[in-house]
Design a protein around this nucleic acid. Structure first.
Ligand SMILES: [Mn+2]
Ligand SMILES: [Mn+2]
Ligand SMILES: [Zn+2]
Ligand SMILES: [Zn+2]
Lengths: 132, 132
DNA sequence: CATTTATTAGTAATAGTTATCGTTACTTGT
DNA sequence: ACAAGTAACGATAACTATTACTAATAAATG
């Protein structure tokens, strides 16, 4: 039986109060304003617990580090290839495709993840070579 | 001006000859059959060079490690949540959605990535709790 | 209040990837 | 064929996000 702790509640509150899909480290420094001696390991452990209980979702798309999302329901994202920011995309999730592909392939499909990539409004003018 | 080397050619050949979306480490051990003293750093360096020149693509989806794909053209994938294998999905890429979302949001959208998740045929019977 | 046990802070360990550096070998031009 | 210039090499160290470990702490229960 999981316990409700000050640390877990603070982490969840931080994550629910932003739309920025933050990294574990960002959450860590934000929660430290309230609990200065919280451990980074505690942040990671609770993010996993919260994910396991279905209260948040983890964005393990793209490369080097995970981002977390206070919204546990499946939805689409846009990632800016220049500044790296991630935005929600308000587009209905197409469940029919899951069924059609499942039929065709024999896979059992639970859901799909979709990420658009490009340039956000702010980054659109000053274009650069992609490095990653 | 990039040079053609034995190492780079071997890495590209290995990657083009499989549909398994291998990791850098898998490629490393396969190439070592031909070039036993090749360095893992060389594998990584060449994978990046090949990606930069558009000859392969990198799947930096899901968490811990990258997978690589000898097919540089955008296409969809299915990932089995039990065995972790990645399969190509032969479904046309829906470019219209990119345009519609771009219109709606003001983002410049280059492409999108789509990954189906579920259970492959082999894993379908012996179900387990998801751990990641 | 006493017991139980999940959780914590702190720290060490892990793992994938990248950086560094002296040496090698591919390319180009004579 | 030879020399010069330089991209790429192998070996290894460094980096970084994440996880594991452990003795101490604090929720939950009744
Ligand atoms: Mn989101
Ligand atoms: Mn593929
Ligand atoms: Zn941007
Ligand atoms: Zn499977």
């Amino acid at each position: 039986m999981p316990k409700r702790t000050r640390q877990k509640e603070a982490i969840l509150r931080v994550l629910k109060s932003t739309t920025s899909h933050p990294t574990a480290d960002w959450i860590y420094s934000d929660v430290r304003k309230e609990i200065p001696n919280i451990s980074l390991g505690t942040v990671y452990r609770n993010l996993k617990l919260l994910w396991q209980s279905g209260e948040i979702s983890e964005m393990d798309f793209s490369g080097t580090f995970s981002r977390f999302d206070g919204n546990p329901d499946n939805h689409y994202h846009f990632r800016c290839e220049r500044c790296g920011r991630v935005f929600d995309v308000d587009e209905p999730v197409n469940k029919e495709t899951d069924d059609r592909v499942a039929q065709k392939t024999g896979f059992k499909i639970f859901y799909h993840r979709l990420e658009f990539r490009g340039l956000c409004r702010e980054c659109q003018e000053s274009r650069e070579v992609r490095t990653k």
